[in-house]
């Protein structure tokens, strides 16, 4: 039993890394545009199916899909951005409806193209078990987690150090002031949106190599990313990362101790508890008092 729990903790941590990438993308586009992209999970979905196509039809490692996924997701993301930008009236409500509609289109497009079957990598190298003391993981899971860590550090560096990263932070905190400082808010928003899409691309490929994907995944991922951001409270990258790990671990423990049917419910319950008890999130205590 103890080994099972340890294994669940470990697997949960590994998938949590990918959840963090998806959640950071959602938070980044929200920070820059004040708009929730309800099609964000579908961007991940597209990337995952790009990996499937490259592996199943191209016969090479799914990691080769990363450039393809980046290209497709960037194009879709840019089109989505331009559509959002066209909205003038009731921007908040209408952009929600718009991105929701785009999510429906993308999910059903994937469904039409690839049917509702569950897909995962067939590369033996990625499915090799790696044993670490009492627990084990597939090689693909380890690589995906490592990739997530590297990307999070890169994102942190980008936001902190690069000109565009600073511009994104400036636009998020005070749009009018940023504009006065000579920052083009539209271009900054687009950059933030594309970076969010890039995170989604990596997350999609990673998910395909470590887990199973199917058309309904996109919607579920958007919800998970949202739960993570609520858990994390006022956003910081480490906060989101910890919240994502918590969600991954909670899900994995639920599957091990109860039933896989309750996996989704575990995240929701966690989410409701935080919403009821800690409205500013697990890591937002300071913001709450202020």
């Amino acid at each position: 039993m103890r080994d099972l729990i340890l294994q669940a903790l470990f697997s949960g941590l590994l998938i949590g890394g990918v959840y963090a990438l998806v959640a950071l993308g959602l938070a980044l586009s929200f920070g820059a545009m004040r708009i929730i992209n309800l099609a964000h999970g579908e961007l991940v979905l597209i990337a995952a199916y790009a990996a499937y196509v490259v592996e199943a039809r191209g016969g090479v490692s799914p990691y080769w899909a990363i450039p393809l996924a980046l290209a497709i997701v960037s194009v879709v993301g840019a089109v989505l951005f331009l559509m959002i930008d066209r909205i003038r009236e009731h921007r908040e409500l209408n952009s929600l409806i718009l991105t929701y509609g785009v999510g429906i289109v993308l999910t059903n497009a994937v469904l039409l193209a690839f049917a509702s079957d569950v897909r995962t990598t067939t590369a033996p190298a990625l499915q090799d078990a790696v044993t670490l003391g009492p627990v084990y993981a597939m090689a693909g899971e380890i690589v995906a987690f490592g990739l997530s860590l590297v990307l999070m550090v890169a994102l942190w560096w980008w936001l902190k150090r690069s000109w565009y990263g600073r511009a994104v932070r400036a636009v998020s905190s005070n749009r009018a002031a940023a504009t006065l400082m000579g920052i083009n808010p539209l271009r900054t928003e687009l950059v933030a949106f594309l970076v969010a899409g890039a995170l989604a691309s990596f997350a999609g490929v990673a998910l395909y190599t470590m887990s199973v994907v199917q058309p309904a995944l996109g919607h579920a991922l958007t919800v998970k990313a949202f739960i993570v951001t609520v858990l994390a409270g006022v956003g910081s990258i480490p906060g989101v990362f910890l919240a994502a790990l918590l969600l991954g671990v909670t899900e994995a423990l639920t599957v091990t101790l109860a039933s896989s049917a309750l996996q989704e419910l575990a995240g929701m319950v966690l989410f409701l508890l935080v919403l009821f008890l800690l409205p500013s999130g697990l890591f937002g205590a300071r913001a709450r008092r202020g």
């Binding site: 919800v223 609520v230 989410f271």
Partner: peptide, 10 residues
């Protein structure tokens, strides 16, 4: 607003 929409989705 937008976070409410997501909450009700979940």
């Amino acid at each position: 607003g937008p976070y409410f929409a997501l909450a009700i989705l979940a």
